[in-house]
């Protein structure tokens, strides 16, 4: 992978960020994911976390574990050089990430902002649901809450900005829209996204070895379930 356009800067004294661009772009994020997967599969001494974001990736390291690197002026310079070497060896070609289908109930009792969002975009509720379920979204990053996926891109005709006043509690499983992004709240949480439905699935479950349903780089498609099916699935999961 070509690193000439990479902007690498320290994020404090135990992390560095590689910025690929300053825009949200699917192909840039794919590059981020290639770096993410490569670094996960080729562990570097002292690296504790690799955090992909929209157009950047951050590597967190433990200074205490690096020790003296004689050819470098600092541990930062050593880790930076090591990471550049790794990235140059990446042969990025095919798409990575799983394809995951997520049931969502778009009943207005769960899609708290569905009617408002439809009116805002001068569409019927059915058209909004159809457009939201017709797209495959890329999980650009996970943040804000454990397992909260930032996914894009939402069809321009059903986009809407965040609510002016965030809700005190958005119920767990709520599917929301914020501009071109769509996301799912893994936990009951304060939040400002426009809520259009709810999934009965657990996005986050501390009893599981891998507690998060989604990972960065996954591709996600929503399909509709009725209110009845929603409760059936939720009961089956919690049972």
């Amino acid at each position: 992978m070509n690193v000439s356009n990479l902007n690498i800067y320290p994020l404090g004294d135990q992390a560095l960020t590689l910025q690929l661009s300053d825009q949200i772009d699917a192909s840039v994020n794919q590059q981020v994911m290639h770096i993410f997967h490569h670094l996960q599969n080729h562990p570097i001494k002292a690296v504790t976390d690799i955090i992909p974001a929209y157009s950047s990736i951050t590597i967190v390291y433990d200074l205490a574990q690096i020790g003296l690197q004689h050819r470098f002026s600092s541990s930062f310079e050593w880790i930076k050089a090591t990471i550049i070497q790794h990235i140059e060896s990446i042969n990025a070609s095919n798409l990575i990430g799983r394809h995951i289908k997520i049931p969502a109930c778009y009943d207005v009792s769960l899609g708290l902002d569905l009617i408002e969002l439809a009116q805002h975009n001068q569409l019927s509720v059915e058209e909004v649901i159809h457009k939201h379920t017709s797209q495959t979204y890329q999980v650009y990053m996970i943040g804000f809450l454990p397992g909260f996926p930032y996914m894009a891109a939402v069809d321009p005709s059903i986009q809407m900005n965040r609510r002016a006043v965030p809700r005190q509690i958005v119920p767990k499983g709520s599917v929301g829209i914020a501009g071109a992004q769509t996301g799912i709240y893994p936990l009951d949480s304060p939040g400002g996204w426009q809520i259009i439905g709810q999934t009965p699935l657990n996005l986050f479950d501390i009893s599981k070895e891998n507690p998060c349903l989604l990972s960065p780089g996954d591709r996600v498609e929503f399909y509709t379930v009725s209110l009845e099916e929603f409760w059936e699935i939720r009961k089956a999961i919690t049972a």
Partner: peptide, 8 residues
């Protein structure tokens, strides 16, 4: 350590 990519 090691779970920040999952928002943890």
């Amino acid at each position: 350590k090691g779970f920040q990519h999952l928002g943890i």
